[in-house]
Amino acid sequence: MKADTNLRPELFERAEKDNKNADKIKRPTIKYWPDVWRRLNHNKLAMLGLVLIILMGIMSFLGTEISGYTYFEQNLSMRNIDPGSEFWFGSDELGRDMFTRVWYGARYSLAIGIIAAFIDFLIGVLYGGIAGIASRRVDSIMMRVAEVIYSIPYLLIVILLSVVLSREGGGTSMFVLILAMSLTGWVPMAILVRGQVLQLKESEYSLASESLGATKGWILKKHIFPNTLGPILVNVTLTIPRAIFAEATLGFLGLGLQAPKSSLGTLANDGLAGLAVGNAYQIIIPAILISLIMFSFNVLGDGLRDALDPRLRK
């Protein structure tokens, strides 16, 4: 042994120590959400998505103010002008500034997506939560009802609702769009929440809580709900782009907002006409923005899912 030169006899005396040190934890403690945030931070794509969402969110408010045009002001002498210094994103066939209109449309698209996702969240959590804790009979009735509702195509509902509820002059109000999407859109959230609740209800810590004398409400509040938050958050993040896309589809089919109001979908619909006469930018720009929004929310949602996955912890 080479180290022998340093070994003095006094080193071979009993060490004065208690074994207390053996239970010490050396790693720093990390709370749950900071840990999730830390892992999300490591995911470059998800962070890019988050930054893009924030930028697009800001632009959907500021973007309508900075070009000096309004979204409805028509200037028939400046129709179909290519993107350039006058109109950054060009002008449409009525001479309106596309830059302002695109951001104005993004504002509606985002608003519809977020509000629809929020309503889905509210109904879904409530419905799924109740089904999860209710008796098996009530649960199975509730889930059959949800499945029936989910099997109705939302397109059909939109068309019906827009016929029944829309004001004269065509177009569908934002309220009707959101209503139509939420009528069926909450079902996946409800199924998710119910599954989570059923699973967590059987978890040993819920059982432990029950053995301590906890009521059902207590277990729900202390154990089940906090542990479903993660998957719910992921689901909300992924519902938003779905709702935005659904709205864009409707807008593209002519079932969207009433002009001069616009969403990205109705803008793409308007741009379709421009495509025929060589003004491709009129459809390409809103299409790119739709894609960017979809992309951002989806990568953020995926990133969140990974960050929240307990199996990937540590």
Binding site: M1, A3, N6, L7, E10, L11, F12, E13, R14, A15, K17, N19, N21, A22
Partner: peptide, 18 residues
């Protein structure tokens, strides 16, 4: 094993035994 050992000596804390 230093922290849990009943017979630990001073040498054990910082020197790796061969």
């Amino acid at each position: 094993f230093y922290d849990r050992c009943d017979f630990a000596m001073k040498v054990c804390k910082d020197n790796m035994p061969e």
